[in-house]
Amino acid sequence: MGFGGVVGRRWTGVGLGVAILLGGMAYTGWALIPADRPAWVGRPGQVTTPNAPETERAAETERAAGRPSTSDAAPPAPPAAPAPDDLPEIDYDPAPAGFPEDPDTLDTTALAQGLRPERRLAAYDAPGGRPLAFLMPTVSGVELTVPVARREAGWTAVLLPSANRKLAWLPPGGFRTVALADQIVVERVPYRLTWYRDGIAKRSWRLSLGQPGQETPLGRTFILGRTPPPEPVYGGVDIFALGAIPDDPDAVPTGLRGAHIGIHTWYHDGELGRSTTNGCIRLTSSGQRLLLEQLRPGTPVVVVDELPTPPPTA
Rank of each mutant, 00 (worst) to 15 (best):
P117W: 03
D86T: 15
A77M: 04
I90A: 02
A112K: 02
T109F: 04
G98D: 06
A83N: 05
D102S: 06
A97Q: 14
D104M: 00
T48I: 11
P75K: 07
E101K: 09
G23D: 15
Q113K: 12
E118A: 13
G114A: 05
A64Y: 07
A35T: 07
L22I: 14
A80F: 03
P34E: 08
T108S: 01
A52K: 04
P117E: 07
G42V: 00
P94W: 07
V41W: 05
E54N: 09
T48H: 08
R63P: 03
L32M: 13
G114I: 03
E62G: 01
A77Y: 02
F99Q: 03
E62H: 12
A52G: 09
L115Y: 06
T109V: 12
W40K: 01
D91A: 13
P76F: 06
E62V: 04
R43L: 10
P34I: 06
P79A: 15
L111Q: 04
I90Y: 05
T109D: 11
R57S: 12
Q46E: 14
L22W: 01
D72N: 12
P103N: 08
N51A: 15
Q113I: 05
P78G: 13
P78M: 13
T28R: 15
P96L: 05
A31L: 12
R43A: 12
D72K: 05
G66D: 11
L106S: 01
A112Y: 08
V41C: 03
P76V: 11
A77G: 06
T49Q: 14
E118N: 11
D72E: 15
M25K: 12
L111K: 01
P96I: 07
P34F: 07
P38N: 09
A52S: 13
D104G: 02
Q46S: 08
E101C: 00
L111M: 13
E56A: 15
T49K: 12
L106G: 05
T28W: 02
L21G: 12
T109G: 13
A65N: 14
A59Q: 12
D102C: 06
P100M: 06
P44T: 07
E101G: 07
G114F: 04
T28P: 01
P94E: 08
R37G: 01
P44Q: 08
P34C: 05
D104F: 00
R67M: 11
A77F: 05
Y27E: 13
V41R: 00
D36T: 15
R37M: 04
I90L: 09
D86N: 14
A64M: 09
E118I: 04
L21C: 14
D91F: 02
T49C: 10
L115R: 00
G42H: 04
G98W: 05
T49H: 09
